[in-house]
């Protein structure tokens, strides 16, 4: 996967998290993988179709999910992820991926996005039907680690 495509997602991930959560953000490991990191108990999936097709899966541990949702909902603490918390997290991911479409467009790539889908539970396996590699970016925030899994293939390459 081209570095500029990865950057198209990385830049809004950092800027949206900083702007919405008002926390310090640093980029951790960026790794290539063949399967999605399944350690996360709460994930949000957004599909892309267009010049690039695939998915972006952003995952959180349950503790990080509660921390982030609490901040977004202006609560001191959340003991459980209620519907408002899930929708807040889902919207955070939507903002990251939506903002990435602007960067992709600037690279000459037109994309359509699906509405976000929430996946609960860490015992989930994802079958990715392409030889392209998955890129996993670990984003360290003051509220916990956010894993961004980016997987797509370039439909313009025959």
């Amino acid at each position: 996967m081209k570095a500029e495509y990865v950057n198209a997602f990385l830049e809004p991930a950092v800027s949206v998290i900083k702007k919405v959560l008002k926390v310090k953000v640093t980029i951790g490991e960026i790794t290539k993988a063949v399967t999605v990191n399944a350690r996360d108990a709460f994930s949000v999936i957004i599909g892309l179709s267009g010049d690039l097709s695939g998915v972006v899966i952003i995952g959180f541990s349950m503790k990080t999910a509660r921390n982030i949702a609490a901040k977004m909902l202006c609560k001191d603490k959340l003991t459980d992820l209620n519907i408002d918390a899930k929708e807040a997290l889902s919207e955070l991911v939507n903002m990251i991926v939506g903002n990435a479409t602007g960067n992709l467009y600037d690279l000459g790539l037109k994309e359509l996005l699906t509405p976000p889908t929430i996946v609960l539970g860490s015992k989930v396996s994802y079958e990715l039907s392409s030889s392209d590699q998955l890129t996993i970016i670990s984003i360290k925030t003051g509220l916990g680690i956010v894993d961004m899994n980016i997987f797509f293939k370039d439909e313009r390459i025959v």
């Binding site: 949206v16 702007k19 939507n94 903002m95 939506g98 479409t101 602007g102 467009y105």
Partner: peptide, 23 residues
Amino acid sequence: SVSAIDKIVESKNAGASNYIVKP
């Protein structure tokens, strides 16, 4: 959240008065 300029132009051409990008 969609910040791609083509969507902004498409919305304007379809009659939108303005376009705000989230967040």
